[in-house]
Design a protein around this nucleic acid. Structure first.
Lengths: 364, 364
DNA sequence: AACAGGAGAAGAGACGATTCTGCAAGCCAG
DNA sequence: CTGGCTTGCAGAATCGTCTCTTCTCCTGTT
């Protein structure tokens, strides 16, 4: 035989198992993968030997052979050099958690990747074998998406893609319905002039939400009252909230599109001596639990990122495995308005029961 | 010749590039990887042809051959079936962001993996080729860590490992110093009896922090006043905060070990009619920015998760690449006390400048 | 008795890159 | 003129697994 395969690495390979079990490589592979025609005795024997040797199949070799890596990319829009977006921390964290969980349950793992190619000297994207990718809020003609699709890799986006980006599928909230419902809620609570705190960027979320607001105003016969600011700037929100409440046509209710707007608006209201909810009704879009504990608790619109993340991954894996038909899929997910004190004129039952009387000292 | 490699896949392989450029496979590989002895002309030519063909080297093949995948595992402690821990959402999110960023900058990507093997029918762990792994808060004799180390894969942990877990390196905060410094700060602000809101679990963070508190009390000649609760239960915190303030030996200052404790304690204080900071000084350990916007703003201890995540990854990659000596490394990272109104008796300068006077309506 | 057919297991390529080794040609010095 | 050195490139082995094909028995039927 010449140089019969010298022991080259510490870990046992399939050949070692075959030798130790006194069978062929084929038999080992079939036994461990539940394929082929083998009597149970052989199967058990091989499995036992493999266990004893601590055999772990090489993921790289399997991937090379089968063409499936079990890896799903998760791309996050990048501000500056950092991955992750800062404005929607809680949203992203929850979405990623659910996505990861859903992937794991189906035997896939998530790989966190930057929003752009060639962010570093190395191109991490082409160093990873991906079965598919989840893209959060892809931009108009996202180069990463374009390239992936060109390579024939399925791409599912969280957020309706702008333009004619050729994603395999997408998932998004029904933003129009959410905003309309929420404005109706405020109006029902007695709001006469509802203001909006929105963003200057042109992503789908901002655009659709603002459009829904404007359309609602038109239908309700109210003049729009809004301030826009660059949402990625953590300080600009407070300033914009202040501007909104400083206007001569000051609104008596405000909806803030971004997570920090709740505290921004609350702080601004305090500065102007406005009581919430008596003088000002407040709602903001947020996934953060802190708004249950603020004074007063603030009504929030939840986009249910968990459901989004889970759905995105399900659709992607379906596309990868060829399940669920070949044609593009889009799925609209409902949102959830969590009504708290800040959007109700009459003091309603609060969720947290106070052990003794809250003592509204000094309040009016 | 026989069946000279029929076109089998859409994507171009290294052979196609070689053929198109009129050189050998070796030359293509060398040209693209900057190895071998090739004149610049050849190198340029090959690169150009590769670009034209849209050639992307197969990550699986490269990994199989070189033994390096460029993938780093990120394991998150699991409560129940879900990955991620809920109590420290902000901590984890920031830590993961920084870790991912640091990895990307050095050409690695992070793979999110469950805290246990065989969480699903598939064992995702053995389906991924990892160069190394980051483990957050490993438990006493973590089976995942043990198995990885047995396979010779470097493991770096965030959090001092309990017991004699054989991690390659670890990074942690100086919890003793942090707690001691913070208690000194409270004492300097006039606290006579400082209470602690702590957890019932036995992880390193809780254990070290509590021990530091007890030792400080002993040195300061104060009786310890503390309540412990299961930190993973989101509701239990509010109850524990209430218990702490209901005690006959009610503390005049409290440190809360967990992120939500700030709002928990603030709410409890309101229920008992205690003014913060006048009647009660407050500090909690948190990475959340909301505490800058609460009423009053709350002093927080930041563990600087970003620095931790970044350092963990650096150490891991050093270990993978053989840089930085072979022996185990442990690194202690400083914490950051962000002093706000809640821990200062005399109204100090707040970080956020108020455009007009805050109007402390009705307050005493 | 001969043969079909199936069960059990082994052989032998791929998969697509990296890389060790080796060959041919050119150049210079002895 | 020749031997050694460098330069430029090609051949072919290898990484570890999956899987298509083949091969050998063995049994049961006509």
């Amino acid at each position: 035989m010449g140089r019969a395969h010298g022991r080259r690495l510490g870990r046992a390979g399939i050949r070692d198992v075959a030798a130790a079990a006194g069978v062929s490589i084929t038999t080992v592979s079939d036994a461990l993968n539940g394929k082929g025609r083998l009597p149970d005795a052989t199967r058990r024997h091989v499995r036992e030997v493999a266990d004893r040797l601590g055999y772990r199949p090489s993921a790289a070799a399997r991937t090379l052979r089968t063409g499936k890596s079990g890896l799903i990319g998760l791309t996050v829009t990048t501000y500056g050099e950092e991955p992750f977006t800062f404005t929607e921390f809680a949203y992203f964290a929850e979405m990623a958690r659910a996505a990861s969980s859903a992937a794991l349950a189906r035997g896939y793992a998530l790989v966190i990747l930057p929003g752009s190619t060639r962010q570093s000297p190395y191109d991490v994207w082409s160093n990873v074998a991906l079965d598919g990718t989840v893209v959060i809020d892809p931009s108009d003609r996202d180069p990463v998406v374009t390239e992936l699709v060109r390579q024939g890799i399925p791409v599912v986006s969280d957020g309706r893609p702008c333009g004619d980006l050729p994603v395999t599928a997408w998932v998004d909230n029904d933003h129009e319905a959410a905003v309309t419902g929420l404005l109706d809620h405020l109006a029902a609570a007695g709001a006469r002039r509802i203001g909006l705190l929105t963003g200057t960027s042109t992503d789908t979320y901002t655009r659709l939400s603002t459009k829904a607001y404007l359309r609602w105003c038109e239908r309700a016969g109210q003049d729009p009252v809004y301030e826009a600011y660059p949402a990625h700037d953590p300080c600009a929100g407070a300033v914009a909230a202040d501007r909104l409440l400083a206007r001569p046509d000051r609104p008596d209710a405000v909806y803030g599109l971004f997570d920090p707007n709740g505290t921004d608006l609350l702080a601004a209201a305090r500065r102007y001596g406005l009581r919430v909810p008596d003088d000002l009704l407040l709602v903001c879009c947020s996934e953060s639990a802190v708004y249950a504990g603020t004074e007063p608790p603030i009504t929030t619109l939840s986009l249910k990122p968990g459901r989004i993340g889970s759905t995105v991954v399900q659709l992607l894996i379906d596309a990868i495995e060829g399940t669920g038909g070949g044609r593009p899929v889009q799925r609209i997910m409902p949102t959830d308005l969590i009504v708290r004190t800040s959007s109700q004129r009459r003091r309603a039952r609060t969720t947290v029961s106070a052990p003794r009387s809250p003592e509204d000292r000094g309040r009016s």
